[in-house]
Write a protein that binds this DNA or RNA. Sequence first.
DNA 1: CTTTGGATCGTCT
DNA 2: GACGATCCAAAGG
Length: 178
Amino acid sequence: MAPDLLNKLLVRGSRRGRIVEVEAYLGPHDPASHAYRGPTVRNATMFGPPGHLYVYFTYGMHWCANAVCGEEGDGTAVLLRALAPVAGIAAMRTARGGITREAALCSGPAKLCQAFGIDRRYDGADLTLAAKTAPWLADDGTPPPATPGNSKRIGISVAVDHPWRWYVSGDPNLSRRG
DNA sequence: CTTTGGATCGTCT
DNA sequence: GACGATCCAAAGG
């Protein structure tokens, strides 16, 4: 499912961004996944029904967001790693503390959450409903890339060899060149 | 351009 | 008590 999320839109209020980079985390079978050691209070949303947002806090200051993709009980999710800003860019700049370069607004998993104002409040949000204030996912008809870029995952220390990162090749908003 | 270190705290051991 | 699905500024080449 991870590459199929490429080119979908993350929407929150007036802010819109096209998903250009994701990583898959395969639940209890994946040592790099928060779900590896089974359900806890923190990762409960991952084990819930698909189509919901799993938001977690890390490094003492950052939020990151995933789309839950497995059936209830599976614990599988896709980390949203980078977006191409589409609308609400002024609001993103403000939320990002005045960063001016557009390609730096959403070019990382914690950056896009900061740009969209996503935190614990939206853990568990239903991504299939066009909500007023909560984040959701829209499909404007743009298909995923026919041949997405693919690489190892970033920032993990175990299960590092699985090529479970996918991205829109050459997009300027990637967290790394690709 | 690449490398390095600091910030900062919830979560699980 | 250790560390993390990160980011940024500063320093070095």
